[in-house]
Amino acid sequence: MQIFVKTLTGKTITSEVEPSDTIENVKAKIQDKEGIPPDQQRLIFAGKQLEDGRTLSDYNIQKESTLHLVLR
């Protein structure tokens, strides 16, 4: 499924993921596309910071959901 990751600069990254993918996994995909190390990434969805060990389905993230990427 496709999800969108919006950066603070307003850029939107499209990523191909599975509901069973972990947040860590998603951060790795963002690193592949943007070159941002996962340890600098914080992903936010519905006002919550997403934890690395959890999966997209844990957070009820569905296709075409938009996550927000904040850098630390």
Rank of each mutant, 00 (worst) to 15 (best):
G53Y: 11
D52H: 06
D32T: 11
E24L: 14
T12L: 13
E64L: 11
M1V: 06
G10H: 05
K6H: 12
L67W: 00
E18A: 12
Q49M: 13
F45D: 00
P37F: 06
I44T: 08
L56G: 01
V70A: 08
V26S: 00
P37G: 05
T14H: 07
L67T: 00
K48I: 14
R72P: 10
R54E: 04
K6R: 11
Q62R: 11
K29T: 07
T66A: 04
L69G: 00
S15F: 15
A28F: 12
T7W: 14
E18Y: 15
V5Q: 01
I36T: 07
I36N: 03
S20R: 08
L56W: 03
K48W: 07
Q2W: 13
L71K: 06
R54M: 12
V17W: 05
R72G: 09
K48C: 08
A46V: 06
F45N: 02
E64T: 06
L69T: 02
A46Q: 15
P19C: 06
D58F: 14
S57A: 14
M1C: 04
N25G: 09
I13Q: 03
Q31N: 10
Q41P: 01
A46D: 12
I3R: 00
T9V: 08
A28R: 15
S65E: 07
E16M: 13
Q41R: 02
I3D: 01
K6M: 10
K29V: 07
D32R: 12
L67A: 01
P38D: 04
I36S: 04
L8V: 13
K27M: 12
V17A: 06
T55E: 03
Q41D: 02
S65R: 03
H68L: 15
L67M: 05
Q41W: 11
L43H: 00
R42P: 01
L56I: 10
N25L: 12
T7P: 04
D52A: 06
T22D: 02
I61H: 01
D21R: 01
I44G: 02
V5C: 03
S65M: 10
K27Y: 06
L50F: 02
E34L: 15
Y59L: 05
Q31K: 09
L71T: 09
L71R: 08
T7Y: 14
K11T: 08
G10S: 03
I61G: 01
T66V: 14
I61S: 01
I36Y: 13
V26T: 02
L67H: 00
I3N: 00
Q49I: 15
P38Q: 14
P37D: 08
T14K: 09
D39Y: 12
T66H: 15
I44F: 15
T22K: 08
D21P: 01
Q2H: 11
T9H: 12
P37Q: 07
Q2A: 08
L43D: 00
